[in-house]
């Protein structure tokens, strides 16, 4: 499988997609090759388009945070539930940071939008709110420079490198 190398800033279409309050899961692995994952609660991209930041509940991600601290390797999958459009971004330089006041403030909008998206599958709002509930004091930020992107929308082309400028 060939990696789609991302050099420099992310494509604006891709930025727009991954920051549109999607379902996000983040994975890392230990130096012994043990993978782990957690759900993220929001994403933002730096003004220059080169840094992606994900909000993670630290209480749910003890092992993942240890992996990131050890080797910085990260993978994050973004899925739009109602369309199944999915993309995965990977990086090698992830680091743990404190969230900003803006990140904490964005949490409410993130949960509202996802609850709406999941209504497409008759998921009750109370469920979505419990599922995406997070205490801002528990959140940490993981920032990295995406170095590879893959389309993962279900189908025979899932897993192929995302072509620059294309939408997932």
């Amino acid at each position: 499988m060939h990696a789609s190398t991302v050099q420099g800033p992310l494509d604006p279409t891709l930025i727009q997609f991954i920051t549109s309050q999607l379902s996000i899961q983040v994975a890392a692995c230990s130096d012994a090759g043990e993978p782990t994952l957690v759900r993220a609660h929001g994403a933002r991209v730096s003004a220059d388009g080169c840094q992606l930041t994900l909000m993670i509940p630290s209480s749910q991600a003890r092992e993942l945070l240890a992996c990131i601290a050890a080797n910085g390797r990260i993978a994050a999958v973004f899925n739009e539930p109602e369309t199944h459009r999915t993309v995965q971004l990977k990086g090698k330089d992830a680091r743990i940071e404190a969230i900003s006041a803006d990140d904490a403030a964005a949490l409410g909008a993130y949960v509202d939008r996802l609850a709406k998206r999941l209504q497409h599958y008759q998921v009750p709002e109370a469920f979505s709110r419990a599922f995406y509930a997070a205490d801002p004091a528990d959140l940490v930020a993981l920032s990295f420079s995406p170095s590879a992107a893959y389309g993962q929308t279900p189908g025979p082309h899932a897993g192929e490198p995302l072509k620059p400028g294309s939408t997932p």
């Binding site: 899961q25 983040v26 994975a27 890392a28 692995c29 130096d31 090759g33 043990e34 993978p35 782990t36 994952l37 759900r39 080797n71 390797r73 990260i74 993978a75 994050a76 999958v77 899925n79 999915t86 995965q88 990977k90 998921v123 993962q152």
Partner: peptide, 18 residues
């Protein structure tokens, strides 16, 4: 609710998918 699956290559690159 679809599950997530994380795996890791031999050269320690993680992968995550639904």
């Amino acid at each position: 609710i679809p599950a997530g699956v994380a795996t890791c290559s031999r050269d320690l690159i993680p992968n995550v998918t639904y």
